[in-house]
């Protein structure tokens, strides 16, 4: 590639640079969360998406404002890529009043209805019927939107997925089934948990299956665009993104079940390192990329500081808010 095309590729609003920025924000967020969790500043369980940033960035790059998504317990990347307010996100995970969900959801249920985020989910596979229903609403109300169900390869063994594939196909719903296949069903290799192949399952329902290297941000973005176009024009589509889970099932999981060879090989597939190398190859200066990392980390650090300073949620107000308040509807 000559220098003119390189400049064109990365100049202005280059898509790869945008994807890279999104991935850096996810990376910085997850890295900060890892430390906060280790320091006891995050209650409960968190499941980090380190290593899976390209799927979140790539898929969300194909979505428009009317589109909706439902995600999983490993959903930080998706909500960040969709544009969730970083302050509200950190406050939520740290259990503060100003949290996106007022400190009631934590990591596993964080939602932003304004962005069409129907929540992360604590139940494996549960995101899929939720997105199915959202797609049904898009179709019935003719919103022009599509719904995305993120799920992991572990959810392939859940009945909800199979029921939803059938219904999406029956009704030609505008929906993308995005499988983040990291090869691990919680603490077990998926090869030992699931005999089928997602391509075959999709095929059984006559649903198109797109397979992509989910650690390649550009390839994932291309595939997601193709899937979104298909969902809008024709109906459901499965997008299977092969990716890598750097950390354990939950943060703090010592991962004694993974061998050192696999762990060592992970760095080679690092989606963030790959997009950085590609940008440098296209002519971008390493120093400029480093500057983006610093800015991003500073943004995250500011969000963490603001969260620490935020008030704790009020118990009585929480208790009084189990049902929609009278007159609010």
């Amino acid at each position: 590639m000559n220098s003119r095309t390189a400049k064109k590729a990365i100049g202005g609003n280059s898509r790869l640079l945008d994807l890279h920025r999104t991935m850096l924000l996810i990376r910085a967020t997850e890295t900060a969360l890892s430390k906060l969790f280790a320091d006891g500043e995050i209650p409960g369980f968190i499941h980090l998406s380190l290593g899976q940033e390209a799927v979140a960035a790539g898929v969300c790059s194909a979505l428009g404002p009317a589109d909706t998504l439902a995600t999983t317990h490993r959903g930080h990347g998706h909500v960040i890529a969709r544009g969730i307010d970083l302050g509200g996100f950190f406050k939520e995970l740290m259990g503060r009043e100003g949290g996106q969900c007022k400190g009631r959801s934590g990591s596993m249920h964080v939602a932003d209805m304004g962005l069409g985020i129907l929540g992360a989910n604590g139940i494996v596979g549960a995101s899929v019927p939720l997105a199915l229903g959202s797609a049904l609403a898009h179709q019935t109300r003719a919103t022009g939107g599509i719904a995305v169900a993120f799920f992991g390869d572990g959810a392939m063994a859940e009945g909800a997925l199979h029921e939803a594939l059938n219904m999406a196909a029956l009704w030609s719903l505008p929906m993308i089934f995005v499988c983040e296949n990291n090869g691990w069903s919680e603490f077990s290799p998926t090869a030992r948990q699931f005999r089928g192949k997602l391509a075959n399952i999709a095929g059984a329902f006559g649903i198109r299956h797109i397979h992509v290297d989910g650690n390649d941000a550009e390839a994932t973005a291309d595939a997601a665009r193709e899937a979104a176009d298909h969902a809008r024009a024709t109906g459901p589509v499965v997008l299977e993104c092969m990716t890598t889970r750097f950390h354990g099932h939950f943060e703090g999981d010592p991962q004694k079940y993974r061998d050192s060879e696999e762990m060592a090989a992970m760095a080679a597939g690092d989606p963030v390192a790959r997009s950085r190398a590609r940008l440098i190859e296209l002519g971008m200066a390493a120093a400029d990329l480093d500057a983006i990392v610093s800015e991003t980390e500073a943004r995250v650090a500011a969000a963490v500081e603001a969260s620490r300073a935020d008030a704790l949620p009020d118990f009585d107000a929480t208790l009084a808010d189990v049902y929609t308040p009278m007159g609010a509807h």
């Binding site: 199915l132 229903g133 959202s134 179709q139 939803a164």
Partner: peptide, 25 residues
């Protein structure tokens, strides 16, 4: 579109109803 026969999939029917309710139906 408003009176919808579903397959025999109670879990997905009710799950989809939640998603649909969040989507304005």
């Amino acid at each position: 579109a408003r009176v919808r026969d579903t397959p025999i999939s109670e879990g997905a029917i009710v799950g989809a109803a939640v998603g649909a309710a969040l989507g304005g139906l």
